[in-house]
């Protein structure tokens, strides 16, 4: 498989503390990669190393199959980025801000209008950025990142400070990029719900270590539903179910069925009814991705 981003044993230490340790990130072409982790897990440090802003303590970064160490400038020609809080020059207008980058990137002037249109800032193009809201500054940062139509777009917490409609717009924009321009996108976030709605692949990082990296579907499989049944005598019902060959757990006030499909649920309930249990409730409990994410990062912290 062709990887746009590939890190090997990537490690960065600040003094004794390892901010990133032995991180192996693999991003195939055309994917939207959600880079998840709690605050302070090492996401931004990793991204800074991907952009050559920081030197790894050990390990290597390869973008487009080229080593970052020796081909930084060549690689960065095809990378657009927005790292942490948006950077801008407050005394310049939106247009002038983009012009400052455009001069260096050497792309046609009309790209400025195009990207401003894309992030819907074209009406304030000639206003000083000083007076922009955080969301507008964020969008300006995204516009700057897309100026040269990069093959890889790296966005660190891109929806920070955006209002709900801004988040939806941004999501639609990001989702359209792989199809329309063949871009590969890396988005970091500490919010799973955000990644869940955009990403096709997920990497979860905790304490500087990659603890999960696979497609979003695989992650969703962890989220299989379980069925909670509440009856007049939970323990007796649980024993009967086990005796009948149905996997179940006894909870405090209910029995949890680990059913594979609907028919199995129906059969178990029918069985309980035949035995004369009074069934009060049958409810589905979904393990949200949020829960899985929390469990994953918790396990890591415990171990």
């Amino acid at each position: 498989m062709e990887y746009i981003v590939e890190t090997k044993h990537l490690t960065k230490s600040f003094g004794k503390e390892k901010a990133v340790s032995n991180l192996e990130m693999k991003i195939p072409k055309g994917e939207i990669y959600g880079f998840l982790g709690p605050n302070g897990a090492g996401k931004t440090t990793t991204i800074r190393m991907l952009l050559g802003l920081m030197r790894p303590t050990s390990g290597s970064v390869q973008l487009f199959g080229k080593d970052m160490k020796n081909n930084r400038i060549e690689i960065l020609k095809n990378v657009g980025s927005l790292v942490e809080n948006p950077s801008y020059y407050p005394h310049l207008t939106a247009k002038e801000n983009l012009e400052a980058s455009r001069k260096i990137l050497n792309v046609p002037k009309k790209r400025i209008d195009e990207v401003l249109q894309q992030v819907r800032l074209h009406e304030v193009a000639n206003k000083k950025v000083k007076g922009f809201s955080l969301g507008m500054k964020q969008r300006l940062g995204i516009a700057a990142a897309m100026l040269h139509q990069p093959e890889l777009l790296i966005l660190d917490e891109p929806t920070n400070g955006l209002d709900p409609s801004g988040i939806i717009e941004m999501r639609q924009l990001i989702q359209s990029l792989p199809e329309e321009y063949g871009m590969t996108v890396l988005i970091s976030s500490h919010l799973l719900s955000e990644i869940d709605q955009m990403a096709t692949r997920v990497g979860v990082v905790s304490k500087g270590k990659m603890i999960f990296q696979d497609s979003i579907e695989t992650m969703r499989k962890f989220a299989q539903a379980s069925i909670q049944v509440k009856v007049n005598d939970n323990e007796a019902a649980w024993r009967s179910l086990l005796a009948n060959g149905q996997k179940a757990d006894l909870e405090k006030e209910s029995v949890t069925l680990q059913a594979e499909d609907d028919e199995q649920v129906a059969a178990s309930i029918r069985y309980l009814v035949q035995l004369g249990f009074s069934i009060y409730r049958v409810q589905e409990e979904k393990r949200s991705l949020e829960n899985i994410f929390l469990e994953m990062t918790k396990e890591e912290q415990a171990g």
Binding site: I73, E74, L76, S87, Y89, S101, I104, G141
Partner: peptide, 18 residues
């Protein structure tokens, strides 16, 4: 200070420049 103000160094250095 022009670059320091909003930490634009990171944006500048992430461009293809030495």
């Amino acid at each position: 200070s022009i670059e320091d103000e909003t930490n634009a160094w990171k944006q500048l250095v992430a461009l293809p420049v030495s």
